[in-house]
Amino acid sequence: MKREITLKINGREETITVEDADTLLEVLRDRFRLWSVRESCGVGACGTCTVLLDGRPVSSCFLLAVRAAGRNITTLEGLSDGQSLHVIQQAFVSQRALQCAYCTPGFVLAVKALLDEIPNPSDEQIREYLSGNLCRCAGYADILRAARLAQERQISKETAMPRK
């Protein structure tokens, strides 16, 4: 069945017609050209298709787009303001936590969800939270360092500029 739905993608309301069988990943890539959302394993194991649904990490590859109607969807493109990199992205760059970078958008969003949920995670919590994101260039040590650095910078940023 075709139907019209409204998705809030990176803060913008978008009304489109989708098939019930369309996955959110297909809609984000094919209709909105959000290329940071990538399909790899196709079964929720690898994390390259990670998006945030109302702030929570989900695999867009097996989420039906119609079931995301009315919800807030954040992709990597929505993380920064378009001018400067988000603190998590900066940490990935400074720690060289990427090589081919296919997995990076998923990792960055996973770190975002982690720090939103647990502002001061233990090393064990970081590892557990990120265990569902796979990096085949094997940059895990760098990625874990980037996650820690992002957490420290985020904390110091919040101390310097308290939220309104």
């Binding site: 194991a45 994390g47 990490p57 989900v58 695999s59 996973a110 969800a113 939270y129 569902g132 994101n133």
Partner: peptide, 9 residues
């Protein structure tokens, strides 16, 4: 079970 994304859905 699985990973955090799977458990979210």
């Amino acid at each position: 079970i699985g990973n955090v994304r799977v458990r979210e859905t």
